[in-house]
Amino acid sequence: MSVLVNKDTRLVVQGITGSAGSFHTSQCIEYGTNVVAGVTPGKGGQKFQDSVPVFDTVQDAVDKEGANVAAIYVPPPFAADSILEAIDSEIPLVIAITEGIPVKDMAEVKARLATSNTRLIGPNCPGIITPGECKIGIMPGYIHKPGKVGIVSRSGTLTYEAVWQITSAGHGQSTCIGIGGDPINGTSHLDAVKLFHEDPDTEAIILIGEIGGTAEEEAAEFIKDNVDKPCAAFIAGRTAPPGRRMGHAGAIVSGGKGTAEAKVEAMLDAGISVAETPSHIADALFKVWNP
């Protein structure tokens, strides 16, 4: 009942001994995520919370603990290096939580990803959760509930808003994927929609987008041509002034491109139910989905 992560996920956390890494890893373990290893160069041989082995390299975590997903909490100057290390260790799924990675570093990572079998989620994202099975990232676990709605979003708290609306209405989520707010990221809206489209246990899809780039339009086009599952969307930034970065490095309208209006229009054209306000995301979905 999910995509990408589930109860069989074997997670290695890069940067597990740092303040963000250790705090969020504890929360994920508490939620039930199967954390099999941590990596902090120079701290190999230690144990995290007396139970999770810490290694010097990602390759060690793969060889000794069979890690198959990596989460990255490494500070921005070193985060791209950590992603590249995970790719070279042939980890199939890497989730980069770190905010503030230089765009140039991500351009280099993206070029390397193209010739690998690794999928990257993020960076600058809340992570991914399959409710009841596996939480990787910084989202509050308790607002989620196992269910049938797949959610993909560029924003953290705005996703929680949508998740909470669905949960409060008595329904749940198959998987929620936070793809992050950076201009260059791994998994796109389109990639996530394709995964939900193919997942038999995802019945309905919510897309949360924002100004900047054209990733939302590409997902809408795919939905128009291929997806029969009910879809709803919300686009943030209708009131954002052009030329200013709205918090997320990728959230900028430049040269008349990446406007909220163009994205909403593409969504409507694809038959997607678009929420007028962030308070009505679940309502927009229930207009087209009768669970």
Partner: peptide
């Protein structure tokens, strides 16, 4: 005053709405 960039943008939008 909002936590999170996406929600902050969405809050501006709903004020306008």
């Amino acid at each position: 005053m909002v936590n999170g960039a996406g929600l902050a943008m969405a809050t501006m939008d709903i004020i306008k709405h």
